[in-house]
Design a protein around this nucleic acid. Structure first.
Lengths: 145, 145
DNA sequence: GAATCTATGTTAGAGCTCTAATGTATGGCA
DNA sequence: TGCCATACATTAGAGCTCTAACATAGATTC
């Protein structure tokens, strides 16, 4: 027998947790009318104003075309603005608008609420252990490729 | 300060592990020329022949329209066949074709290889602990909604 | 100076994902 | 019989995601 039962697959449990996380964050972002990827981009933009789309993509863990899609939607809603870089003409500097910052803060409140509820389910020791084990997952899986 | 550092957010680490998992499984499924969601559907279909699309969606943790999309692509490639149910005319019974089974087995070999490599990174005790902690994540997050 | 490397940005195309809405079929119940 | 609840299937529309390919600009190197 080459196969493996789903419950034995660590991957199933990782996926399940991630799905629940995405659903919870999505609900938390709903009052701000942004998606989770949009919220993630806005959050990083608040911290690093003027960042390039490619660098933002790296921070968010997506590819540049993906970030391009997300930014296009944010720009259409007027939550960000993109202006050519002073020296590197090929680079577009991306910044939050005032409305973008307000929306980000609203979404962040919901997201932090979810994270706090999640953290409350563990002791400090468990929390650190979980993070360590998840880090090892990512490490091993990245090496697999 | 209402915000929270990314490294402190358990969610970031869950997401990162899931991303690495998806990338590794995607690479593992590449020889069989199927996507990870397609592989998941094929795997369940092998275990439950004749299952309805809605039930399959529940097993795979996606919505019926999503499963519809996946099945449509699988059907176009001739990996599955869908026939009307004998009694319940509204239900379509879905089954693997011979080619579908072969493709599933090829993809499964790669997927199991990834899972074994992942499992090898942990002691038996760590593995059980990780699964327990991830289960608690899903539980808490589902309750959040 | 010209070729090359590196980084950014963009487009095209395929596929997955969701919510919302609609249609259809089956079974139970008044 | 007719109404209703449940379940399945599908369509529409929006959005995210990837790979592949191409274009551009700046930096390095010969």
């Amino acid at each position: 027998m080459t196969s493996m039962a789903p419950e034995e697959r660590i991957g199933s449990h990782v996926k399940r947790a991630e799905q629940a996380l995405l659903a919870a964050k999505n609900a938390a972002c709903k009052p701000a009318a942004v998606t989770v990827p949009q919220y993630a981009a806005l959050l990083w933009l608040a911290e690093k104003p003027g960042i390039s789309a490619a660098a933002l993509a790296r921070l968010c863990g997506v590819t540049p075309p993906t970030m391009n899609t997300v930014l296009k939607n944010l720009q259409e809603r007027g939550l960000i603005e993109r202006t050519p870089h002073e020296w590197h003409r090929n680079v577009l500097e991306t910044r939050l608008t005032d409305e973008g910052r307000a929306v980000m803060e609203l979404a962040d409140a919901g997201a932090v609420r979810v994270e706090r509820a999640l953290a409350a389910a563990f002791t400090e020791e468990e929390r650190e252990l979980l993070i360590e084990l998840l880090g090892r997952c990512a490490e091993v899986l990245d090496a697999q490729r």
